[in-house]
Nucleic acid binder design. Structure first.
Length: 527
DNA sequence: TCCTTCGGACTCTCAAACCC
DNA sequence: GGTTTGAGAGTCCGAAGGAC
């Protein structure tokens, strides 16, 4: 590391000294709150917290919208379930965005340049005061929850973006100017060496958001530093674009990112972000693994609850399905008529083919397998709530019924177990089927519910959603109509309502729907 | 304590403007 | 064609007040 001027050198020494003090004195931070260290002799002050970015749904339901309250992707949403507004819980209608709005010239770069000028002019008044970091700030060498903010006297802009290290070179940081709530301060963003990316805070989402926010500012800042030509010896710039080559003077950049090395600080920040993103992805993958595998039953309810709420991928899966079903009632009527028509037509065709001489040859030569995929009734789960976040991770609408004895639907919720004691006579109901099944018929094993295929004896076929297989001729019935033999149910989804006898926990009642796709294997099968 | 209301801070989206 | 910017549109935090 080299410094270009004595003044900056002094400042740099101060920073290094400060970093070492941080290393020596700072215990672990308290999550969630950050504070701006003050100068020596004054009390540490609470800083504007490095807020986590607020997540919001794409489309709140009409009720939540009206109440200005948090909504979720489920329909009905948790809030509507809580307040019994499930009937009216529908997506609000979004206005179409205006088009043709003229935009003025971009302003951002100008603003940043102004800021840079401000920083640069303040260089001459660098205070020699020793600044301290309150002891609540995280310890170097440990994973800090947040980047370390330190409040400094005026600092040369030349230091921004520079990798700083403690005197023992144990830790490296990038100094980043920050402003929040009208208060300016600086953040020391820890940068790990070698193949490691920046130190990843434990609270990924929050920190990722922070980093993302920082990233933009930093990039602009560094970029403007470069462009304004003030990047003397302090900057780690190696990018030929800026015609500054001081590689030998600078601290290392993570080896892993050699190909991006020339991006210097920008790349470090980029790494920080990508690292966070990767880790987040890992979290997602891990969550999905948990969903796919046999989720450990050993987890206590609280941790499971927490896990469930942290499974965005699976939740999305479910939520997507939930959204689909909100249109079910509408779709159903239309599709019913279409389906009936198709079935009728195919029956007629099938009959015609049978009765026409030479058709067998025709069929084998000209047959074009037709696929009728009636995504007719997407599975849905009406009422997962905060208290009862049932997640069905098995894509039930793709389960091959013909080959399976059971349709396993994985239930990730232990809330059910928490809230309701399992009763011997607990019932599960296949709502579409209109039939109830005892626990014996729908055995509940750990976190899996298994639903046996229907049998004709249990139901009135005319109301059956479920395909009914005839042992001898292998045909299927669908909503009371016999499907032509060439039709094979290729996928089936259905779900059920764990009907809980405990009336005091109506939110535990989950209602799901069935879906069925049918495909034609081609007319040659009809012979 | 719970619920409703609502101002306004915050976030998201995407067309226009800009860049390569 | 890809990226950046920024304003429109929407979400929802959090304070205040009312009902029970």
């Amino acid at each position: 590391m080299s410094v270009s001027s004595e003044e900056d050198n002094n400042l740099y020494q101060q920073l290094q000294h400060q970093l070492q003090r941080i290393a020596l004195t700072a215990p672990i931070t308290t999550q969630g709150t950050t504070c701006i260290p003050s100068f020596a002799g004054s009390m540490p002050q609470l800083a504007p917290p490095l807020k986590t970015k607020r997540k919001q749904v794409k489309n709140a339901c009409v009720n939540c919208q009206k109440a200005c309250k948090r909504c979720d992707d489920g329909r009905p949403c948790q809030r509507c379930i809580k307040y019994g507004l499930t009937e009216t819980c529908k997506n609000s209608i979004r206005k179409e965005r205006k088009k043709g709005i003229k935009r003025g010239p971009y302003k951002r770069r100008t603003q940043i340049k102004d800021q840079d000028d401000k920083y640069t002019t303040s260089t001459s008044s660098v205070s020699s005061e020793v600044f301290t970091v309150p002891a609540s700030y995280g310890q170097i060498g440990e994973l800090p929850v947040n980047p370390l903010p330190i409040n400094l006297p005026s600092i040369s802009s030349q230091i921004f973006g520079t990798q700083l290290s403690t005197l023992d070179s144990g830790e490296k940081f990038i100094l980043i100017p920050q402003s929040s709530g009208g208060t300016s301060y600086y953040v020391l963003m820890p940068v790990q060496q070698q193949n490691q990316i920046s130190i990843l805070p434990t609270r990924i989402c929050a920190s990722k958001d922070l980093t993302t926010d920082l990233d933009q500012d930093i990039q602009v800042k560094i970029e403007s530093e470069f462009q304004s030509g003030v990047s003397d010896g302090l900057l780690l710039e190696e990018d030929s674009k800026f015609a500054v080559n001081k590689e030998e003077n600078y601290e290392i950049i993570p080896n892993k990112e050699k190909e991006k090395k020339d991006k210097s600080n920008l790349s470090v920040l980029s790494l920080v972000c990508s690292g966070l993103l990767n880790q987040e992805t890992d979290t997602y993958e891990q969550a999905n693994k948990e969903m796919d595998g046999n989720s450990s039953q050993d987890e206590d309810n609280e941790s499971l609850k927490s896990n469930i709420s942290d499974i965005p991928v699976s939740q999305n899966l479910v939520n997507n399905e939930k959204q689909q079903v909100s249109e079910y009632n509408k779709k159903n009527q239309i599709l019913d008529s279409v389906k009936n028509k198709i079935v009728k037509e195919n029956l007629e065709e099938s009959l015609k083919a049978h009765n026409t001489p030479g058709d067998s040859v025709k069929n084998t030569t000209h047959v074009e397998p037709r696929v009728y995929s009636w995504d007719y009734h997407s599975p849905s789960f009406q009422t997962p709530s905060v208290e009862s976040p049932l997640l069905f991770s098995t894509p039930a609408n793709t389960y091959p019924v013909a080959q399976a004895q059971y349709v396993p639907i994985k239930c990730e919720s232990n809330i059910y177990d928490m809230k309701c004691t399992r009763q011997q006579n607990e019932e599960f109901q296949l709502l579409q089927h209109g039939d109830s099944f005892s626990q014996n018929q729908i055995p509940m094993r750990q976190q899996y519910y298994e639903i046996s295929p229907f049998t004709p004896s249990h139901t009135n076929p005319s109301n059956a959603y479920m395909v009914q297989q005839n042992q001898t001729s292998s045909f299927y019935q669908f909503r009371g109509q016999q499907l032509p033999p060439q039709f094979t149910p290729t996928s089936l989804s259905f779900a059920f309502s764990p009907r809980i006898s405990n009336k005091s926990t109506p939110q535990s009642q989950i209602r799901c729907y069935a879906g069925l796709s049918v495909s034609s294997n081609g007319l040659e099968d009809s012979s």
